[in-house]
Nucleic acid binder design. Structure first.
Lengths: 117, 117
DNA sequence: AAAGCATGACGTAAATATACGACATAGTTT
DNA sequence: AAACTATGTCGTATATTTACGTCATGCTTT
């Protein structure tokens, strides 16, 4: 991301980082949770629920949409957002696999700081 | 994080965002995977494996350490890093719960863009 | 003690992220 | 058509991130 030497990293690593970045702000985490809670996709109500200005929330929504985690659709005057459950499911697997490997590794340094390299 | 109105968000949301942010860069994802792969905790070898300058890698290591995902320990001349499997396990559960809720929600907008708000 | 080596801390430049107010756009209602 | 409303885009100020070179520190080895 940003201006990293992206070419030098795995596609997988970049995708994981990409999604992680999308969730790297409490407001965006809150938005996803909010959309998950309410079945129906909300519009500007999201802005009302968050302690941020409407424009800022809109910006966060665009970021989530850019990554593909949510979808927006115009319904007359309002815009409805909802989770992209397909992508979320795929992302879930990626994170699951990632954490599985990470937690599987034995703690070499030990819980109490005993490194035995 | 950053300069968000953190007080307005859940502790849970902030923690999740905090970890997500730590993983929001492919280099840091790579570091965690590298530490997971090699049982023994590595030191400056990490820098050699990544396509970044040694100082930049050190900076990424400090970030991961600040969040608590990894641990560093001085062993004479070198410094050994290893995963904090305890925290990783906890974080894993948080992400699992988060994605469980997110994927459980029915896609109201539909896979083919049919919003029925 | 002196020379060497691995690391982190510091300083810095350039790119991003965050937050918002002011505008532009487009559908709704009167 | 005119007034209204919900949204996104744009511009902007400030804070952070990223990447690196240089320097300081602290063991190690000679």
């Amino acid at each position: 991301m940003t201006y990293a030497k992206t070419a030098a990293f795995t596609h997988e690593q970049q995708q994981l980082a990409r999604v992680a970045k999308a969730l790297a702000h409490p407001a965006r985490v809150a938005i996803v949770q909010l959309l998950a809670a309410r079945q129906t996709c909300i519009s500007g109500d999201i802005a009302a629920e968050l302690p941020l200005s409407r424009t800022t929330v809109s910006q966060h929504l665009q970021e989530l949409k850019a990554v593909g985690l949510i979808r927006g659709e115009i319904d007359g005057l309002t815009v409805c957002y909802c989770l992209n459950t397909e992508l979320l499911a795929r992302v879930q697997q990626q994170f699951t696999a990632f954490f599985a490997l990470a937690t599987a590794a034995a703690p070499v340094c030990g819980p109490t700081e005993d490194c035995a390299c």
